[in-house]
Design a protein around this nucleic acid. Structure first.
Length: 581
RNA sequence: UGGGGCGUAGCCAAGUGGUAAGGCACCGGUCUUUGGAUCCGGCAUUCGUAGGUUCGAAUCCUCCCGCCCCAGCCA
């Protein structure tokens, strides 16, 4: 990661100046005042119990971004203190995703479990100073003693055990003498605290679960509250950035560090990301996967980084998105259109253009010589001349998009219809002179057209203009492909917006995936590599699926559609017409 | 009715006593062999509400209203 001047504001994303945010201001101010000896050291601390999603990307960009910006470092630390939910599969995927996003933790790959021995010693220290005790209350009893939001709790009957007894009991907990859940080690703070987290919180529980790293070496595990701050401290973290729900834990975070008199990082909280038309909680994402509403964690409809990657999103687009949405303490829901915009903006500059017909109608050019083939020049990317040109074969029979023909064109439709003309991109102006239909079903079988030889693209012989240019693919040269179109996973902006006695699953969009299996793409793409991204002209950005696209049959995922003024106009015209009647 | 936070446009979000940045969305127009992109213009007389302080308030003070989080031996 490169280091830049530590000057706070005026960071750029694209070409726009992006204002600073409160966390950047805090770090900047700390540096100015010489805190932490001029060091900035952050960490990204996921629990390996699921795949990373775009909400994590916000945190990753924040933590790694701040470190890079101020010449500091950012650790990757797995917060693996609850073996019953965690798995090595998740740590692998997390590493892959952070790397894919473009960040590098160097040799600083840490695990809270690396510190189990040290944490145990810290616990002993607290017992010795009379600040922790072993409690025999079971979970239910502990709840009763805890009190409620409005009533203080009561001291545990075991709170006043002697230091020696506590030491002995804690060692025996660790030695495996007591069953799961029978005893806990608790901090001795204040059962009457208005902050429930300070009511003698649990530091250790007895739990016989095999840990993905430490195996069966331990049968007691530290809780988040006891492990997190001390892990931060051990690693020399300066700014411990987490989400809003931990605000109430900060006094406890500070308490442990103060009692232990060890390096004291500053915890800073920000609002987690929410996005319209999707869910962003591990629990719900897990449910979508397990109940097979989607195809797995990397289903292109999933808001996971693995899903976005397979969908064709670029790390740059996601990073830019994270920069643009800002960092604040206000709970908010970002419009998914913002994310889509970031992808289009990026791909517009770098994706080669290509022609593909998703829902083909056959067209025969009656006045074009049979057997003749022309090689037409096509620009690979009008935004970037350096990407060069390619040849596209043109012949008498080709396919166009069903949407580009209307037998009875509505007002404002200026594509092909009987007697009307359009330009074929990079080729000629054609006119529709006939429509062949199945005599039984009435379905359109093919269009009869004629072309004007004077109108070839690039030639100056004709100054003729037509209102529309459509894409096409020569029938004889077309490569057949499958294209998967995706829509939002949920029909409502807020998936939780449901009628009484229904839940978020009721808002799953039944049409979030559409598979088109007889698409025709230009031959230029026969050898397209998995993961490569293209713009299908006039349709959107697509990438070759990295899982199911063997050489024999190409499978494309639509990453995002192009903005479509006509579709929008037609929809609003349709809506107002419907409203009038 | 306890504690901790947060209220600036349809959605994000700057702003920290000197007269409301920027982005997304949306609406016009320009240009165009992608109804794409680009470019240009529009989009908060007002910052949850009501008072107060001040020459001057989104910024300071007070009341009120609304929303979020916390009663796991999850993180």
């Amino acid at each position: 990661m490169e280091s830049k001047a530590a000057d706070g504001g005026d960071k750029t994303a694209g070409n726009e100046a992006v204002p600073s945010h409160f966390i950047r201001n805090i770090v900047s101010e700390d540096l100015k005042q010489g805190k932490n000896g001029g060091r900035v050291h952050t960490r990204f601390p996921p629990e390996p119990n699921g795949y990373l999603h775009i909400g994590h990307a916000k945190s990753i960009c924040l933590n790694f971004g701040l470190a890079a910006e101020f010449g500091g470092m950012c650790n990757l630390r797995f917060d693996d203190t609850n073996p019953s939910k965690e798995d090595i599969e998740y740590v692998e995927s997390i590493k892959e995703d952070v790397r894919w996003l473009g960040f590098d933790w160097g040799d600083r790959e840490f695990y809270a479990s690396d510190y189990f021995a040290q944490l145990y010693d810290f616990a002993i220290q607290l017992i010795q100073s009379g600040k922790a005790f072993v409690c025999d209350l079971n979970a239910e009893q502990m709840r009763e003693y805890r009190g409620t939001l409005t009533e203080p709790g009561k001291n545990s009957p075991f709170r006043d055990r002697s230091i020696d007894e506590n030491l002995d009991l804690f060692r025996r907990m660790r030695a495996g003498e007591f069953p799961d859940g029978s005893r806990t080690l608790r901090a001795k703070i204040d059962m009457a605290s208005p902050n429930i987290n300070m009511r003698d919180p649990v530091m250790y529980r007895v739990l016989r679960a095999s840990h993905h790293r430490t195996g069966d070496a331990w049968c007691i595990y530290p809780t988040y509250d006891f492990a997190h701050g001390q892990s931060d401290s051990i690693e020399g973290i300066t700014h411990s950035i987490c989400t809003l729900e931990f605000e109430d834990h900060r006094p406890l975070y500070d308490w442990f560090l103060d009692q232990l008199s060890i390096h004291h990082p500053q915890q800073i909280e920000f609002a987690r990301l929410n996005i319209t038309h999707t869910v962003l909680s591990k629990r719900k994402l897990l449910q979508l996967v397990q109940q097979e509403y989607v195809d797995g964690w990397d289903d292109p409809r999933m808001p996971t980084l693995a899903g976005f990657r397979r969908r064709g999103y670029t790390p740059e687009a996601i990073r830019n998105f994270c920069e643009r949405i800002g960092v604040a303490k206000r709970n908010s829901v970002v419009d998914i259109a913002m994310l889509e915009h970031c992808l289009r903006e990026d791909l517009n500059k770098r994706a080669p253009r290509v022609m593909a017909v998703l829902r083909p109608i056959k067209v025969v050019l009656e006045n074009y010589p049979e057997g003749q083939i022309e090689e037409l020049d096509a620009v690979n990317n009008p935004e970037d001349p350096a990407m060069g040109t390619r040849k596209i074969p043109f012949s008498r029979v080709f396919y166009i998009e069903q949407d580009d023909f209307r037998e009875e064109p509505p007002k404002g439709f200026f594509r092909l219809s009987p007697g009307k003309e359009v330009r074929l991109r990079y080729a000629y102006i054609i006119k529709c002179v006939g429509v062949d239909k199945d005599p039984v079903t009435g379905a359109i079988q093919e269009l009869r057209c004629t072309y004007d030889p004077e109108t070839k693209s690039g030639s100056s012989r004709s100054g003729r203009k037509v209102k529309a240019t459509i894409h096409w693919v020569s029938a004889a040269h077309a490569v057949e492909a499958e294209v998967r179109l995706y829509e939002h996973l949920f029909t409502k902006e807020d998936p939780e917006d449901v009628p009484e006695r229904s839940d978020w699953l009721a808002n799953i969009n039944p049409n979030s995936l559409e598979r088109l299996t007889s698409c025709r793409i230009e031959p230029y793409l026969v050898d397209a590599k998995p993961g490569s991204r293209y713009q299908f002209e006039r349709l959107g950005y697509f990438c070759v699926d990295s899982e199911e696209s063997p050489p024999t049959k190409l499978v494309f995922n639509r990453s995002v559609s192009l903005r479509d003024m006509w579709a929008k106009k037609e929809k609003t015209v349709g809506d107002s017409r419907r409203n009038r009647s």
